[in-house]
Amino acid sequence: MSNTNNAKKYWKENIRYLSVLLIIWFLVSYGCGILFREELNQFRLGGFKLGFWFAQQGSIYVFVILIFVYVRLMNKLDKKYGYDEK
Rank of each mutant, 00 (worst) to 15 (best):
Y61D: 08
K12L: 14
Y10I: 04
L45G: 00
F36Q: 03
R44L: 10
I34D: 03
G47T: 05
Q42P: 01
A7Y: 13
I60H: 07
R44N: 14
S19D: 09
S19N: 13
F68D: 08
M1A: 14
Q42H: 12
Y30K: 00
K9C: 14
F26Y: 15
I67G: 09
L77A: 05
L77E: 02
N75D: 02
V62K: 09
L22V: 14
T4L: 15
V64L: 14
G33K: 07
R16Q: 08
K9F: 12
L40Y: 00
I67C: 13
E13K: 08
G58V: 07
L21H: 05
L18S: 10
F26H: 11
K9W: 12
F36T: 02
G51L: 12
Y30N: 03
K80Y: 05
V20P: 12
F36I: 08
Y70H: 11
I15W: 09
L40W: 05
Y81P: 00
Q56N: 13
G33T: 04
Q57L: 11
S2C: 04
K86A: 00
L40K: 05
E13D: 10
I24D: 08
L21R: 06
A7R: 15
V20G: 09
W25Q: 13
A7P: 08
N6Q: 09
A7N: 14
R44V: 12
L22D: 10
F63T: 06
C32Y: 03
I15P: 02
F48Q: 03
S2M: 11
Y30T: 01
G31P: 07
L77K: 09
L40A: 03
F26E: 13
Q42L: 10
F43A: 13
N6M: 10
W25A: 11
G58T: 07
Q57G: 00
N5D: 15
